[in-house]
Every structure is written in C-alpha cells, then in structure tokens.
Nucleic acid binder design. Sequence first.
DNA 1: CATGAATGAGTATTCATTCAT
DNA 2: AATGAATGAATACTCATTCAT
Lengths: 204, 204, 204, 204
Amino acid sequence: MGLEEYRRSVSEAKRASILKAGRSNFLKNGYSGAGVAEIAREADVSTATLYKHFSSKEVLFAAVVTDAYVADDHPDTPHQTDIEEFFVGLIARYLHLQYDRQINALVRIVIAEVPSAPKLAHDLFENFVGARYRAIEHTIGQLIAAGKLKPHDVHYGARFIAGPVRDHFVWPALFDADARLPDDADDVVRRVVRDYLKLYGARD
Amino acid sequence: MGLEEYRRSVSEAKRASILKAGRSNFLKNGYSGAGVAEIAREADVSTATLYKHFSSKEVLFAAVVTDAYVADDHPDTPHQTDIEEFFVGLIARYLHLQYDRQINALVRIVIAEVPSAPKLAHDLFENFVGARYRAIEHTIGQLIAAGKLKPHDVHYGARFIAGPVRDHFVWPALFDADARLPDDADDVVRRVVRDYLKLYGARD
Amino acid sequence: MGLEEYRRSVSEAKRASILKAGRSNFLKNGYSGAGVAEIAREADVSTATLYKHFSSKEVLFAAVVTDAYVADDHPDTPHQTDIEEFFVGLIARYLHLQYDRQINALVRIVIAEVPSAPKLAHDLFENFVGARYRAIEHTIGQLIAAGKLKPHDVHYGARFIAGPVRDHFVWPALFDADARLPDDADDVVRRVVRDYLKLYGARD
Amino acid sequence: MGLEEYRRSVSEAKRASILKAGRSNFLKNGYSGAGVAEIAREADVSTATLYKHFSSKEVLFAAVVTDAYVADDHPDTPHQTDIEEFFVGLIARYLHLQYDRQINALVRIVIAEVPSAPKLAHDLFENFVGARYRAIEHTIGQLIAAGKLKPHDVHYGARFIAGPVRDHFVWPALFDADARLPDDADDVVRRVVRDYLKLYGARD
DNA sequence: CATGAATGAGTATTCATTCAT
DNA sequence: AATGAATGAATACTCATTCAT
C-alpha cells in the first residue's frame, strides 16, 4: 500500500509536470511547432515516460486544453437577488478566465488544427465553449421560469449577451497574441447586460 | 518588346496559377499541412519556379491572404430608405460572403499563424475585419447625424449588432471546417437588427 | 526447508510460464516482432522477474528453442516387418510433428537469427534436424546390414528420401505462416518411399 | 533531351548505388537490423534521395531481392541431346547461382520477415523459387511429350529432382552463414539426376 | 528562365533493460 | 523476491529549399 501510494504520488507529480511543460511549449510554439522531446526535457522526464502518460502528442495537447478549461466551470450560480449584477458577474468571470488562463492562445492552436484534428476542435467546442453557453442558457431559462425575464428563446438570448462581449474582447485577441484585457472591460460587459435587460427584463 | 511582353504575361499567368493552387491547398490543409511541392504540382509549375515568384512558403501564404481580401467586397452602401432593411442587407451580405468565399477557413489559418506571423494577422484584422467594422460604424454615424438613430458610441453599436450574428454563425464555423450557413440565418440577422433598433432607433 | 521448496516451486512455475508465453509470442511475431513487456504480461509476471530468470531477450529465445526440441520426439523406431510401411510411418510421423508443433515457425525464427546467433542455429540444426537425419541413416544402415537394402551411402540415401518430402511440404511452409499440411501428404510420402525402394530395395 | 538523358543517367547511377549498399547492409545486418540512414550514407546519397527511388524500407528490400534473382532466369533451355547432361547443367547452374549471389542469405532474411511481411515472402516464393520449379516442370513436360521420359506428374518430378539437391546443399546453408558449396556438389547432382532417370527415363 | 533531382535537418514513437521501493 | 515506472538510445520518413543542367 505504502509502495503503491508512493508510486502514484510520484507518477502524478510527473504527469502534472508534463502538463505544465506541455502547456508552456504549445503556447510558445503552436501545435506543430512544439516538440515532444523538448517538452519531456522541460518536464525533466524521459520521452518514454511522457508517452506512458499521454499516448500521443495529440492526446497530450487535448489534455493540456482540457486542463486549462477544467475547474473553470463551477459558476456556482450564486443566487444573487440583483439580475444585472448576476449576469455581469457571470460574463465577466468567463472573460477574465479567458485572459488569465491564456485560453485565447489555446483556442488559436485548436483552430489551427481544425483541418488535421477536427475531432479535437469539435470536442473543445462542445465541451468547453458549449458548456459556457449552456450555463448562460440554463440561467436565462430559470429566470424566465421565475418571471424575472420575458419569455424568449434562450439560445438566442445567450448569444445576444455573449456576442457583443466576444466581439469586443475575444475576437481581436485571436489576431493578436499580445492583446490585453482593457481596463474598461467590465463597464462594457455591464452596458451589454443592461441593454439586454432593457429588452428582455420582465418588469414594466 | 513583343518577346518581353510575352514572357511577362506567361510569368504572370504562372504567378496567378500558383496563387490559386496555393489558396486551395492552404484552405484544404492549413498552413503546416500544405506542401510546397504539392502546390507547385497543382499549379503545373516546378518548385524552382514557385520559389522564383515567392521566396518562401510564408511569403506565398501572405500573398494568398492578401490576394483574397484585396479582391474583396465594396459593399457600396446602397442607400435604402428603410433602416431595418438596410442593416439586414448589409450584415447578411457580409455573412454570406464569409461563407461563400471560405473566409472562415482563411481566417482559421491566419489565426493559426499569429505567433509566427503576427504582422500578417494584424494586417488581416485591420484591413479586412476592421474594414467591415468601419463600414458599419460609418453608417451608424451617418444615421445618428441624420437623426434616425439615437446618439451612441458607434464602436459599441457596431459590435452590438455584429457580435450576436458572429456568435451564431461565425464562431462555430471556426471550429468546424464543414459548417454550413443555416437556412434561418437571415431571420436571425433580422431579429438582431430589430432588437438593436428597439434600443437605438430614433423614436418609436 | 518447506519455505525454500515452496519458493523454488513458485519460481519454477513462473519460469515455465515465461517460457510458454515466450514461445507463443515468438511464434506469432518472430524474434524482433516479439516484445519482452508483452511476454511478461502474458506470463503474468513483471518484466523485472522475467529478467531475473532470463538475462536478455536473446537468452530467453535460446531457452524457448532449446525447450522446444528437448521435449521433442523419440520416434522409437517401431520394428515393423514391412520396409515400405516402416519408412512411410517414420517420415510421415516427422512430417506431422513438424506441423503439429509449429516447428516450421520455430525454424523460421532460428533461421532469421543465424547472423546474430549462429551458435543457436548450429545447435538446432545439429540436435534437431540432424537427429532426424541420423535416425533415418541409422535405419538405412541396419537394413543394408540385414540385406534388405542394396548397399549405398546412408548419407545420400537419407537425403534422397527426405529431400522430396521436404520440398513438397516444408519448403513452402517456410514462406507461408498459414501453410497447412495437404490431405494427400501421406500419399506423396508413400510414393517417394516406393521410388526409393525401387532403386535401393534389395531385389524383387 | 541532353538534359533529360543526363538526369536519367545520374538518377540510375544513384539507384544502382543504393541497391548495392542496400544489399550489402541487409546481408550484414538482416532486415530489421539494417538502417535506412546507414544505407544512404554507404550509397553516398541523402536519405530523401533514397526515398525518392524506393518509397519505403520494405520496397527497397524487395528490390534488392528481385535484383539478386533477376537475370538469373534465362536458363535458355540449351537443347542438349543428352538428357542427363541437360538436367545436371540446369540444376547445377541454379545451385551455383544460389551460392554465388548469396541468395541463401537473402532467403534467410525473407523467411525472417514472414510474420511481419507475408506478402514479400509469398511473392518471392511465387516469382523466384516458383520460377525455377516451373522451368524444371516445363522441361520435364517437354521431354515426356518427346517420348524421352516416361509419363509422370511433372510437379512430383521436379520436386523429386530438386529435393535431394536442396537437402544436401541449401538446407544446411540456411542454418550456417558460412556454408560453402562442397567440391563434390556437381557429383551429387549428377547422382540424383541419374537416379531420377533410372526411374523416369523412357527407354528400356 | 525553367527544371526536378537532391538535400539534410528535423521528429514522433518504440522497446530492451534498470532501479528505487 | 517481486514490482512496474522510468529510462534513453535508436530509427523510418518528410519537406522546405537549392543547384547543376
């Protein structure tokens, strides 16, 4: 038991180390630019060990991407009484995560691999981008049911909020590796949410 | 003279042929997936000739991209009296062009090359994506000046219209090479425009 | 003592298990195709244990080969009165053993390793193939002494009988892992023996 | 034309050089032991050039084998009046070629690769080993038709002659890389042929 | 000016063997 | 004595680019 546990802890440490090195290398060099040997060296691990943990470069990259998104999606629906605050908080949180975790850069790489690894891109979109949409849609649905929003198509509503924000802050960042989140980002988010609520808020 | 001219015309024909083959190959395989030898073969030209015209793969790719958006649209702002129809027409035209000319695929590749060719991406964004924003902003500005829209930040306004549309139809297409424009696209565009006009239209 | 004995019996069981797994794996995949890790897994043993028993892949292979022919046949020369029946029985028995025990596959692998393990091949030929020749030669010698065969070189005689049979049924099987012994094999053997006896039988 | 011809001659020289280096390397190291890079170096050629000529290691090996057998099969059926001389000449020629061209060593390698490259072995057996059988069978058929041999199954006849010879001189050589053709080889061939003719020769 | 054969550097992946527990 | 995670060396194949005709 002691032996097994020891082994597992070592193994997991190596796995984490590989993930970290992989992330940094993919971000720096892109998918095809990254080298498995270099990642292994940076992770202080032999290539064979790397392959024990991740059966191919593609699998490693998918793990890096997943790892970046994961633990990200407990928007834990804080039951805030004020709808505006709630939406602003939700969207702003996504936005800051997007920058803090360099998800734009990862998304860039995934997009680059669409022709050669369509499944990876599809899965990313489904599981991560899609998860965020679904969270927003779910919330909208609940608010409609609670009578706090006018009835409307949640699919449309989610994109009506997220679209302008993405156009402001994500879309340009896809074309510029050095893009930084502007200081007024939260203000813009608030403005979008207010406009949305003017149209779809329930009262008067 | 005649001889020289003949030579030049032949040379330009080859250049055009290479560009065309390059475009199709880059679109199909992505940047790193595309092969110079294959492009040369498709263009019915030797690799050496290709290199006479374009000094490297990267230069060729930049030329392909430039060529694609240089030849692009002058949406020539048709002066329509009805504002809704006008906006719907403008946005929908952009949207259809985006799909018809495989601009999503092109954008995908440019995004992929952001780390290695930042200037190219920057230029594309400025000259191409930016041109469209500017066209919308210009129109909004004129309509505000004409009293047909409430005064508001044109930069914000343009993204408020374009964002939801892009979220619906462009964003998913970046992750899926086989994405097709849904039949209801124009309806969604109209709905977005109407929502925008409800908020920013000049009076009831 | 009891403990030591128990340990030894476990150890020998593992050794046997490794040998069995090794044989099956070498037969299926050839020498370089076989994998030590896979053999260990099939034997339900760790690689380290395997290496405790056999210090290298080559040593393991040699053990597999030796084990295969050590356990081999004692064709126990049944004293049959009829010479034709006797020869047919002897040769046919060898032939069926060759197929039943997958000796062709084993021979294939040994032949493959001639450049890297010449001694192994030499020993196999001496002890295994040679043993069969010697059995035939010995029999011929006895029959000549008994006046039942014309005097002739036993070395030549043995190859005169065995050669055609091998050409029919062994030679092709070396080039085809899926070769099966044809139904008419025994008929061919009998025909060869009859032809041999026509030439070298003692008279009428 | 001059240019094309020049290129072709250079190209063919390189091809021949690769084949030669390949042959020597395969003979020395076996199939999996041989290294493409090393072969290229020995041939004074880049690996890419090697791959231009032979699209894979397997293809190169097949070419080496083919090259060894080829030009070997114009047994040009010398219409010799004496049947014994004719058969002895035919069989002895094959036998000497087998040794002179180190075909035994090549055959060893092919046999080694049966599990991993069954098609190669099958083709070798069909096209080369088979070709020799067919040549003998064809001859026997003609001699039967001409009344010079008793009617009998040519398939059986060919193996009845070839088998003992192979058992004497080829079979042992498969297990011993240093095997040399004994001086009395031709005598043994003659003896086998005579025995065959005693049984299947036409007259009296 | 055009050719296409030649280059050689670069890379993902495998596997026999060892070693800390 | 047994484990199995870790090793690192080794290798087939590709591709942007150049150069002799």
